[in-house]
Write a protein that binds this DNA or RNA. Structure first.
Length: 308
DNA sequence: AAGACGAAAGTGGTTGA
DNA sequence: TCAACAACTTTCGTCTT
């Protein structure tokens, strides 16, 4: 259960706490700090793509973590087989198998060790919640086991896994941010992200502009009212079908820009554009659409009068 | 002088034949 | 596999505050 006494964010003092029961997290909507993520969660945190995987993943007993390279477990081809029962031929085969198993598993382990270190580095740089880190570690592990890393740099797959995990947990980071944190080119991350998610059959909902609002708003130091106003605007925009097909960051940025205007907390298009990682032009386009379809100019005028 | 606006050309990715 | 296409960016000139 949530600790009822947590009312304020220890980081920024904000009272805009968001309790996500499903994920067992309490997040400060102002600064994005994850205040509590150790809550007991009764839902599955893994996915089963087929019965084979279901077999492997359903478990009871000690918890398993994917941020340890061998998940705290480890297997080798039977050490216990009774060799005297085998003919020379099958005995050779047995040794060969064990040798290969050993080579493959150590190769995978080495890779995972390095990759997970990198993953942790990037995740902490981006201040990602633990749950996201776990998820991305899981995705990466699967990717390695399926040999999807071959021909790609380890780092780019790590970045792709992180990006995917962020999206699934609805705490999206932009490709630009991932790119900055990992030092991998944006399009490379996008490519591996698509590849990995497709190959692993992970399906990801298109990201919702609303998810970006808290982070952008706090980066711009906007009042909480402005923030909720922008979410309101976004909801209207979604009903007016202004959001589909557009880049979510652009829409989020435009909504923030408008609500800042309405609340007299003027920010320049450039400022908003920078934190959202889009250009002023995109903000202008979205902004114009918002004004057209939602007749928000009334609200802006109203506010101007108030000021006078 | 800085910010807002808009037109035009370029880029990378998706889609449909 | 290729071409058409939509969304977004870059660049640049003009208007507004």
């Amino acid at each position: 259960m949530i600790a009822e006494y947590i009312k304020k964010c220890p980081e920024c003092g904000g009272i805009n706490l968001f309790w996500n029961k499903e994920k067992g997290e309490v997040i400060c909507k102002d600064c994005g700090l994850v205040i509590e993520d150790k809550m007991v969660d009764f839902t599955q945190e893994w996915r089963e793509f087929d019965s084979d995987q279901a077999e492997k993943r359903r478990r009871s007993g000690a918890p398993m973590t994917y941020t340890q390279y061998d998940q705290g477990l480890g297997t080798e081809v039977g050490v216990k087989a009774d060799l005297s029962q085998l003919g020379a031929k099958s005995r050779n085969k047995f040794f060969r198998l064990r040798k290969w198993q050993y080579r493959i598993s150590t190769a995978i382990e080495r890779n995972l060790k390095l990759a997970l270190a990198e993953l942790k580095r990037v995740a902490s740089y981006l201040k990602l919640p633990k749950a996201v880190e776990e998820e991305s570690a899981r995705i990466y592990t699967l990717a390695v086991q399926r040999g999807l890393v071959r021909g790609r740099s380890m780092e780019s797959v790590v970045a792709g896994a992180l990006y995917a995990a962020c999206r699934r947990h609805e705490v999206p980071r932009t490709l630009d941010e991932l790119s900055e944190a990992s030092g991998i080119e944006k399009k490379e991350i996008g490519r591996t992200y698509r590849f990995v998610t497709r190959e692993l059959g992970i399906n990801i909902l298109p990201s919702n502009p609303v998810d970006y609002i808290p982070r952008f708003a706090s980066a711009l130091k906007l009042l909480p009212e402005t923030q909720s106003k922008s979410i309101e605007i976004l909801e209207k925009a979604q009903k007016a079908e202004l959001t589909s097909g557009r880049g979510p960051t652009g829409i989020a940025a435009a909504a923030l820009y408008v609500s800042a205007l309405i609340h007299g907390e003027k920010r320049t298009q450039r400022e908003v554009a920078d934190v959202a990682g889009v250009t002023e032009v995109t903000i202008r386009n979205r902004y114009k659409e918002l004004l057209d379809k939602l007749n928000l100019d009334d609200e802006i005028k109203k506010n101007k009068k108030k000021k006078e």
